[in-house]
Structure formats: structure tokens, C-alpha cells
Design a protein around this nucleic acid. Structure first.
Lengths: 231, 231
DNA sequence: TTACAGCCATGTTTTATAACACAAAAGTAG
DNA sequence: CTACTTTTGTGTTATAAAACATGGCTGTAA
């Protein structure tokens, strides 16, 4: 499940942050970072848990979500490789407020937060990196609040699809590069599963997408973006 | 409207950050910070504008909000003295995504972001301060997303009232220490003005609060918190 | 093979909330 | 003081979305 050797295979890809480090700092990371693999749907961390490590998704797809009222869960954001996550709670000196789980088999590099902050003390660029990430995350969260509360179902679902396209991209045949259960799509869009299914169907009848099981092929991306934008 | 002398009257209260600085850094701030006064309902910054200064609210009350679909605006967060704001966009290297306006006559200290980042380069504690603030803000935003989307009207309004109590406090007679138009209360709670008014009325009939114009007196705070929590 | 669980899909009913309409009250300007 | 705008309050109607119910499909396990 975890190993320190494996880090060498990936260390080139931790890029963004890696570039900001000197040799000594890189060495420190190499000695303290470790890899974990997660199965499909496996939990990565839970709400209420004490945050200890910075995580970087190397392979796979991860959802950050919250269990809301009456079992309904809300996907807050999604992570793609190579992306850092799980740092907010530690920086805020709080427990985790969210849960994280793997959409599909995923590989995560974990770095003890103590090591990260040790480096930050002497490396302004790493500080700057996290400040930027947090600021971007906060901007996205603010946008999302308004979109989820004010857009109608069609707009919210369209937005989620656009979001998935922008995050994970399209294959050559315009299939969205992630296969989500209808329930996940619903949780991403703040609606019931029934309504996600229904609304997908109307998108099909409007020739905006086609469906083949969980494969979503985008026919009219422009129209999709328009629906997403206008609510 | 602005003055550099006035900064001396307040510099003691910029506390949190002030404490983290050495004499030279404090001098730098004193020479570059300036004060602006804002009238009731006056805009402080607008969406799309280029962020240039860090702001610190010295006196008054400020709302950060977004204009959503169809003129409906959503209050994202509220600021109380002494609190820093307006830093997210600069750190993210974006334009402002939100608007800010004064609820009531307010005094703001502005510090050029260039000066702030200059200090941050050599002062890890100031970096840490902003990382912490951003992390706290992000946590609040995540919570808020779920609360606004999943709670019912009563829960959302109760939550707003609790939020106002926790932010601005109660006077000796249990009056919430801010006088908001029903419309602002609605925008804070993601509902129409009519429904804010209606729901306030039912809270009165349930002896949870009493109303006298815009004065809201809290009778049963526990019950209010319970409604807020249970949605 | 059958039985069963987990997704999909779709039709019907119910309900929360927005939208609308209209007064009354309060604040503001001339 | 009067006219006028803005805010507040309430009743009614319309509607978006949830809740519920049911059935089909697919894969899996006995």
C-alpha cells in the first residue's frame, strides 16, 4: 500500500513545487514523502480527522465532498493529477471539514506537513505557491456558492459537465474522460439522482450529448456552455 | 476621503499583523498605508476591478457579495473590525470576483499589495498569517456551500442570524448589533425578500425573536441555533 | 439456472419556494 | 405638510424540484 522507493518514479512530476526547491530541500522531501494507492471509491481522508500530510495526486481522480443534511453529500471539488490537496485544514489548524475519496484507482504522494512547513520557513516561493492555490480555491468556492444556489437544474448539470470537460478533458471521440455514477453527477450538481438522470435525458433529446452507460459524449459543447452560463 | 496622518491613530489596532513586524517593516507600512472612509452603502471595490491594496476594516461593517443571475445578489461573507480583506484576488493574480460595500459608515486602512508582498518575502510569519486566513475563509466557504444548498429556508435564515450574532455580537438587551434591510438578510440567506420577511414573522410568533423595525432582539438563542443546525 | 443487489430510467404526487399582486408604513425630498 | 419613493408585510398563484413508486437492465453469486 505504501512505499518510499516508489517516490523516485514520480519525483519528476511533483513539478510545480519541485522546481521551487534547492537540492537540500529536495533531499528532505525524498526522505519523508511516501506513496499510497487507493482503490476505486476508497476513502482517502474523513471529516473530523487530524490532518498530517500534504497530498499530491499522481494518478487517478479524486473527489472532495461533504456529507450534508440527511445523507445527501455534496461534491465540493475534484482533483486531477498532478494536483496538491488536503492542505487547507492543517494550515487553518483545524480538523478536516471535508471527506476525500478516489473516483477510480489512484496514486497519492504524501508529505508530512511538518516537513512542508519546515521548508516554507526558508522558502518564500513555496509559501507563495500555497497562498496562490488557496486563493484560487477560495475564488472557485465563491463562484460555486452562487452557481449552485442561483442556477436551475439544467444550468447546474451543464456546469458540472463543463467542469468535468475542463478538468479531465475529452477523448478523441468527444467522450468526457471520466465515468461517473449518476449519483456522483447529482452530488456534483446539487440535485437528486432522479433529476440528474432526467436532465441528462433531456440533454440527449436536445442533441447536446449522447449517452452509452456512463459514457457521456459531447455533441454540442457550445450549447452546453451556454446553458451552463445562463443558468 | 483619505489621509496618511490618520494611520497613526489606528496603527496600534492593526494588531495581529503589526505584532509580527520589526521596526523597519512597521516604518514601511506607516509610510505606505492610507485611510479611506466609506459612506453607508458605498461600494469599496467592484467585480472585475484590478486589486491593488490590502484592506483592513478599522471601523464599521462591510459585506462581500456577488451579483448573481437575474440581479439577485448573494452575500458571501461579512467583515468586522479589525479584519483584513480584499487579498484573495491579488494573491490569485486575478481581478476581483466579488463586490464589497459598506453596510454602514466605515473606515478602511489600505496598504499597497506590493508593500505587503515585499514584507512577506522576508517575514515568514506574515506569510503564515495569510495562509491561515485563506484557509479559514476556504473552510467557511465550503461549509457555506453545503448549508445554503441543503438547508431549508428556516434553517438558512436562522443560520444567518446566528452568523450575525457571532460576528457583531449582541447588545445588553440582546439586540443583534447590526441593522440590516430585509433584502440584505435575504441575500445573506439565499432567499427572496418576501420569504425573509415571512420567516422572520414566524420566528416572532414562535417567540424566538422580537422585531422593532430593523432591530432584531434574540429571545431564544438556543432554539435559533438548533434550527440553524438542523436545517 | 435462479435469486439478488445496484444502477438506470420514467411517471406521478407532493411540497418548498419563487413570483406576483397589492397594501400599509416609513423614510425622504420638495 | 404633501408628494413620492422605498421598505415592509401578507395573501395568492405558479412552478421547480424533491419524494415516492415502479420496472427494467446488468452483473454477480449461489
Amino acid at each position: 500500500m505504501q512505499g518510499k522507493e516508489e517516490i523516485y518514479n514520480y519525483s519528476g512530476s511533483l513539478n510545480e513545487v519541485w522546481r521551487l526547491l534547492n537540492d537540500q530541500e529536495r533531499m528532505l522531501l525524498r526522505h519523508n514523502a511516501f506513496i499510497q494507492h487507493f482503490k476505486k471509491n476508497q476513502q482517502i481522508y474523513c471529516e473530523g480527522e487530524e490532518p498530517k500530510e500534504l497530498m499530491c495526486l499522481l494518478k487517478g481522480k479524486v473527489k472532495i465532498y461533504k456529507e450534508g443534511i440527511g445523507g445527501r453529500s455534496q461534491i465540493i471539488r475534484i482533483i486531477k493529477p498532478i494536483q496538491y490537496f488536503a492542505y487547507r485544514a492543517y494550515f487553518a489548524r483545524e480538523k478536516y471539514l471535508t471527506d476525500a475519496a478516489a473516483f477510480e484507482p489512484s496514486t497519492v504522494c504524501l508529505i508530512p506537513m511538518k516537513v512542508v512547513t519546515e521548508i516554507m520557513k526558508h522558502n518564500y516561493n513555496v509559501c507563495k505557491f500555497f497562498i496562490r492555490q488557496l486563493s484560487l480555491d477560495l475564488g472557485i468556492a465563491d463562484e460555486r456558492t452562487v452557481n449552485l444556489t442561483q442556477k436551475h437544474i439544467r444550468g447546474r448539470l451543464a456546469e458540472s459537465l463543463v467542469f468535468l470537460i475542463d478538468s479531465y478533458g475529452l477523448e478523441e471521440d468527444n467522450t468526457i474522460n471520466i465515468y461517473l455514477a449518476r449519483e456522483d453527477l447529482a452530488n456534483l450538481s446539487n440535485m437528486t439522482t432522479s433529476n440528474a438522470i432526467r436532465t441528462l435525458s433531456t440533454f440527449v433529446s436536445e442533441k447536446i450529448i449522447t449517452l452509452d452507460g456512463r459514457k457521456i459524449k459531447v455533441i454540442d459543447e457550445e450549447k452546453l456552455r451556454k446553458i451552463s452560463k445562463l443558468g
